[in-house]
């Protein structure tokens, strides 16, 4: 039931953004389509089930978005510095990091965030380990790499997805 409401809400938000109006007839058409789509096509959408809709969770979501945007800009400055340097200062390698997150959606968000932060790219996921291509390997050890790459996002995602 919770899944149904979340999918319905997301479809409605996309509908309103696409139409860019709040006229009642358009909203009604959108509500009917979103109801049928989420009732018949989404029987097993368990992706959003373990999200915490508490005030704390919502505040942490906003903080997470802020941290993420700052890191995106930082990573671009880093990439620009590396690309425009004539000597091409790279030292690539694939390292392994561990995560404590259990929920699937939280893991997807973590992998996406890792891809967009300075010099890292998720290559593969096996059970608890993420394999990450790091453009400038500082340490090959699992614990040090985990602390360097994963921890800053994990502490927010742990609160949001319990």
């Amino acid at each position: 039931m919770k899944n149904f409401f979340i999918v319905f809400l997301i479809l409605m938000i996309v509908w309103v953004l696409l139409n860019n109006t709040f006229q009642p007839d358009i909203l009604l058409v959108g509500a009917v389509i979103a109801f049928f789509a989420s009732a018949f096509l989404c029987k097993r959408c368990e992706l959003f089930a373990d999200m915490n809709f508490t005030p704390k969770g919502i505040i942490y979501t906003i903080i997470f978005l802020g941290v993420f945007m700052i890191d995106l800009i930082k990573s671009n400055l880093d990439v620009t510095r590396r690309v425009l340097n004539p000597a091409l200062p790279i030292k690539p390698g694939i390292v392994e990091v561990k995560t404590k997150l259990k929920s699937k959606f939280a893991r997807m968000l973590l992998a996406n965030s890792i891809t967009l932060t300075p010099g890292t790219l998720t290559v593969d996921v096996k059970d608890d380990s993420f394999f990450i291509h790091w453009i400038d390997v500082k340490d090959e050890d699992v614990k040090v790499a985990s602390k360097e790459i994963v921890e800053k996002f994990e502490k927010y995602l742990e609160v949001i997805y319990g």
Partner: peptide, 14 residues
């Protein structure tokens, strides 16, 4: 193949 400057490949070992 990786470039020659690659230092470590944990995925292969695993």
């Amino acid at each position: 193949p990786f470039t020659d400057r690659t230092v470590v490949d944990k995925l292969k070992v695993s």
